[in-house]
């Protein structure tokens, strides 16, 4: 076999593998039910982070380190693109989605609300580093508020 043929075959197989991995996963993520599940996992992660900080604030067994890890998770999620978490076509009715269609009505507003989480979480991170529990509690409250606004307006009540 000539080198050229080998090269072409190699390129084709690499492309094939790339397609197999990314192409398929892209196709998987485009499944709305799958997207809803992904979102729920992301939100659970976010909740886990908030919960760790809360546990520290309540003085119920979490260490400052747990709280620091928790807020790092919150920050990481807050940096995600809301479009990826809330792709269109994943409103209530799709799998067990709890997202009201209103969420997509004014996307600019939704984006703005999502963007408010990060600065609040950054302040929470600073407060945790500072170590003052009262300040942490306050920053935690402010961060919860950025979550709660959307839950209030865009989330269908859970059972």
């Amino acid at each position: 076999m000539s080198n050229r043929v080998v090269n072409v075959l190699a390129a084709a197989s690499v492309a094939g593998m790339l397609f197999a991995t990314f192409g398929l996963s892209a196709a998987g993520a485009a499944d709305p039910a799958e997207q809803v599940k992904d979102r729920q996992q992301t939100m659970k992660k976010l909740g886990g982070g908030m919960g760790a900080v809360a546990k520290y604030v309540k003085n119920e067994g979490a260490t400052a380190e747990d709280a620091a890890k928790g807020v790092a998770t919150v920050l990481a999620v807050s940096k995600m693109d809301p479009k990826a978490i809330f792709p269109e076509g994943t409103a209530v009715g799709v799998a067990d989605s709890a997202a009201k269609p209103e969420l997509w009505k004014d996307w600019n507003d939704t984006q703005k609300r999502w963007a408010a989480v990060q600065p609040a979480a950054t302040q929470l991170e600073a407060a945790i580093k500072g170590g003052d529990r009262a300040q942490i509690a306050q920053a935690l409250g402010a961060t919860s508020k950025t979550c709660g606004g959307c839950h209030e307006d865009f989330r269908v009540k859970k059972n």
């Binding site: 809360a54 509690a137 919860s144 209030e152 989330r155 009540k157």
Partner: peptide
């Protein structure tokens, strides 16, 4: 009652959020 945070880290919405 202070922040809306539940023990599992969720934040209440709906009428209780208000």
């Amino acid at each position: 009652l202070e922040t809306g945070l539940t023990p599992d880290g969720d934040v209440v919405g709906g009428a209780m959020g208000e």
